[in-house]
Simulated scan of single mutants.
Amino acid sequence: MEPTVSPELTAATAARYRLRSQRLVPRTDDQTTVSNLLTAVSGIQAQEKPAAALGVRARSSTLTKADLERALYEERSVVRTWCIRGALHLVAASDLALLLPIFGSTFVSRGPEPKRLEAMGLDEAAIDRAMEVIRDALREEGPLTREEIARVLRESGVGVDSESQAPYHLVRRAALLGILCEVAPKEGQTAYDLLDEWVQFDDPPDRQDALVELARRYLRAFQPASMDDFAAWSGLYVRDVKLAWGLVADETTEVTVDGTQAAMLTDDLEAYESATKPTNSTDSRGAADAADRVRLVPGYDSYLLGYEKENRPIPREHESRVWPGAGIIRPTLVVDGHVTGTWRLDRSRATTAAVVDPFEPFDPDLEVPLRDEVEDVGRFLDIEIELRFVD
């Protein structure tokens, strides 16, 4: 029997596939809800609310900021909480049964947070007591802001300095444990309430089944990707990463991206090849039209964070312009799947502007689709926006 030969993908083809996996090309239409979109892309990182909202915009031609807020606070079909990598994400409420048991149990103890809390005078006994106080307070008084939670903790004998980061870390832990989640703002402040009173979701699956489903969903949202990419995106322990990746292996096909091994779900590979097939031998961009070549992607976007560092679509020489330090990840200009600049919203003038800072002189042929992107940001936010380039 002839040995199976892995399909070989160029970097350009892999970029087209990844754009498609993240629903950045083509963007979804008016039949997609916010919750369905979030399930399809395995959540959107949401440490900054405005950036997370614009992540929805980048993947939908019809959803608006008002749709997102309605899904969050009226329908409750979407939740902003800590889960993947222990970080804040927008996720479908129906996916919490899958995500929280996996990531909550991992990130309650993983990372620097336990030592930070200990340095603030909170040992494990004090933290456990804090969890009980938070649960009881929300049951009796919720929803509560972080400042109100800090007050209740102090009144209950848990030594918490409201000026420190202790309340934040305790709220995060309570979210990872499935005690609370973020709910509608209270007098303009971020508020929290009991998770099981805010949303309803199914019982969690068996952990092994959950890990397999997580790997499957990751691939569907980021393929082609490697096990190392999955590890970077999830932040899970190596044993869990290897178990999940191994158990989903019979559903995947190995591919190579410029000689580097990756994988795709076998059922999706043929569909991707058909959907992104070049229209002729000279068209290196595939079937995507000019409008799909340009995307204004927000800061902290999953498109950048879904892969290990070596596989991120950012030129090494310009990486510091996207990651300047202090945990900041700037909004990016993406052309044909590769980061070619940064951008920001400037609200200092009468008309808000999208200020674009390309790494290299911008291709004039792409100015029309870029202006269309800027106009679409305005559609999503329901404001007028103009395009400006950094000199």
Rank of each mutant, 00 (worst) to 15 (best):
P167I: 00
Y168V: 13
Y168T: 14
H169T: 03
H169K: 10
L170A: 08
L170H: 14
L170W: 14
V171E: 07
V171N: 04
A174W: 10
A174Q: 08
A175T: 10
L176V: 11
G178R: 14
L180N: 08
L180R: 06
L180Q: 01
C181R: 12
C181H: 05
C181E: 02
C181S: 14
E182Q: 14
E182I: 08
E182D: 02
E182T: 15
V183L: 09
V183D: 07
V183I: 14
A184P: 06
K186F: 10
G188L: 13
T190H: 10
T190Q: 15
Y192P: 02
D193M: 09
L195C: 02
V199N: 07
Q200E: 10
Q200K: 15
F201T: 04
D202I: 10
D203M: 07
P204F: 12
D206G: 06
A210K: 00
A210H: 06
V212F: 03
V212S: 00
L214E: 01
A215L: 07
R216W: 04
L219C: 06
A221R: 03
A221V: 09
A221D: 02
F222M: 12
F222C: 13
Q223Y: 00
P224Y: 06
P224E: 08
S226Y: 08
S226H: 03
M227T: 10
F230T: 07
A231M: 11
A232Q: 04
W233D: 01
S234V: 05
G235V: 06
G235C: 11
Y237H: 12
Y237A: 11
Y237I: 04
V238N: 07
V238I: 15
D240V: 11
V241L: 13
V241S: 04
V241M: 11
L243W: 07
L243E: 15
W245L: 01
G246T: 12
L247C: 02
L247I: 05
V248H: 03
D250T: 14
D250S: 15
T252A: 11
T252N: 04
T252M: 11
T253H: 05
E254C: 00
V255G: 00
V255L: 04
V255Q: 00
T256W: 01
T256F: 09
T256S: 09
V257Y: 04
V257M: 05
D258Q: 04
T260P: 01
A262T: 01
A263L: 00
M264I: 04
T266R: 09
D267F: 05
D267L: 01
D267V: 10
D268E: 08
D268C: 05
D268K: 06
